[in-house]
Amino acid sequence: MRGFRFALVRAARSRSRAELHTVQRHRPSDLAQRFSHSASAPARPSFGIAFDIDGVILRGRSPIGGTPRAIRRLYSEEGTLKIPFLFLTNGGGVPEHRRALELSQLLGVNISPKQVVHGHSPYRELVKRFEDDLIVAVGKGEPAVVMSEYGFRLGKLGKQTVTCLRKCTHHMMFIQSELKECLLSAILLIGEEIYRYSVTSCLLVDFLGLKKGINLLCILQLMILNTRINDHPLKYTSYGKPNPFVFKNAANILEKLVLSMYPNSQTSMEVKDCQFSTIYMVGDNPKVDINGAMKAGHPWSSVLTRTGVFRGKDNDPQFPADAVVDTVEDAINYILEKECVQ
């Protein structure tokens, strides 16, 4: 009997040593797998957000309602960006880095210049196109500073020397003397569309010698007048909302923003199409913000606030949004709840 028990003990010990050897053989890879899982970067968000500024985030220079508190929910406790978002506005007149600094101070978070897209931001891509041409930059704010930061040679537009810098009402513009004798390639307008009527009127009256007080039809009449100066008339192109191009450009910027937030999630070579399942456009203007998101199509979804242009009780009948809320704080609550983000 003792011999039988001894044989059982020896067999048990042999099994224990074999099992221990098996565990030790697999343990390093198991530990590495657990370490790799714990050390891996968090999954990148499947959605992004674009906010209009005036009437949504700010009224003048004051944040609307609980906007700062709401925006902080898009950041981690350490202050790093957690949810990719940007500001998409037709306004501007100042460089993007200056607007980013202003927003950072007003909202109490760190806003990167990459997160600010003005209506004139696409002009940066036109520098080479008009490198040797005469152009006029006109608008509200500081067009000279904006255009020079984009790379335009203000002071020497094309090969012509700008001999006059004037103030026209609240707009600044660069012109060249004897403008009528030069071939004008482009007039780049800076600022909200509401200002373009007075900007164009001012340009025509002050620099093309028209009689003051004449009834002008904004850009259309400028194009007609320009045919008297150039062989080829100017063609009007809008680079602001609701142009679908603006939303496609914003989606690309959000993608690059995500790659900087999560550099290990995928390489830039792998980004071919929009990787977001949804991009939310939060705005107050149905004709501009909501209409633009509708024209852009997937993956854009629209959220309409009642803090600016739109004040209706129900949805806008002409350009209905996917959701209607009172404030941007409600919009962020709606988005995070829909995306199951705490």
Rank of each mutant, 00 (worst) to 15 (best):
M1W: 08
R2K: 13
G3K: 14
G3M: 09
V9P: 00
R10M: 13
S14Y: 10
R15M: 09
S16H: 11
L20Y: 10
L20Q: 11
L20G: 02
Q24W: 03
H26M: 11
R34N: 07
S36E: 12
S38T: 03
A41I: 07
P42T: 08
A43W: 00
R44H: 02
S46E: 10
F47K: 04
F51V: 06
F51N: 02
D52V: 03
I57D: 04
R59A: 12
R61S: 13
S62V: 15
P63T: 08
G65M: 04
P68H: 03
R72S: 09
E77D: 15
L81F: 07
L86C: 10
L88G: 03
G91K: 08
G92M: 12
V94T: 10
P95Q: 10
H97T: 06
R99A: 09
A100C: 14
E102D: 12
S104C: 07
Q105M: 06
L106C: 03
G108R: 01
S112M: 03
P113V: 07
P113R: 10
V116M: 12
V117H: 05
V117K: 01
H118P: 00
G119L: 06
P122Q: 05
E125P: 00
L126H: 04
V127D: 09
R129G: 00
R129F: 04
R129W: 00
F130R: 02
F130A: 05
E131P: 02
D132R: 13
D133R: 00
A137G: 05
V138Y: 04
K140V: 11
G141D: 02
E142P: 00
P143K: 07
Y150T: 02
G151D: 12
G151Y: 06
F152N: 01
R153N: 14
L154T: 05
G155K: 12
K156L: 10
L157I: 11
G158T: 08
T163C: 06
K167Q: 15
C168R: 06
M173C: 11
M173R: 03
I175W: 01
L179F: 11
A186H: 04
I190Q: 05
E192S: 06
E193I: 05
Y195H: 15
Y195I: 02
Y195W: 10
R196G: 00
S198K: 11
S198N: 12
D206I: 01
D206M: 06
F207E: 08
F207W: 07
F207Q: 04
L208S: 02
L210M: 14
K211G: 05
K211N: 11
K212G: 12
K212M: 08
N215H: 13
C218S: 15
I219T: 13
I219F: 07
L222V: 11
R228A: 14
I229C: 06
I229G: 00
L234V: 08
N243V: 03
F245W: 06
F247G: 03
F247R: 05
K248Y: 03
N249S: 10
A251M: 09
A251S: 14
I253W: 00
L257N: 05
S260W: 01
M261L: 09
M269S: 14
E270N: 10
K272W: 01
I279A: 00
D284M: 08
D284A: 10
P286G: 08
V288I: 12
N291W: 07
A293L: 04
H298Q: 14
P299R: 09
T307I: 03
V309Y: 12
G312R: 07
K313Q: 15
F319Q: 07
A323W: 08
D326A: 07
E329R: 06
Y334L: 15
I335N: 02
L336Y: 07
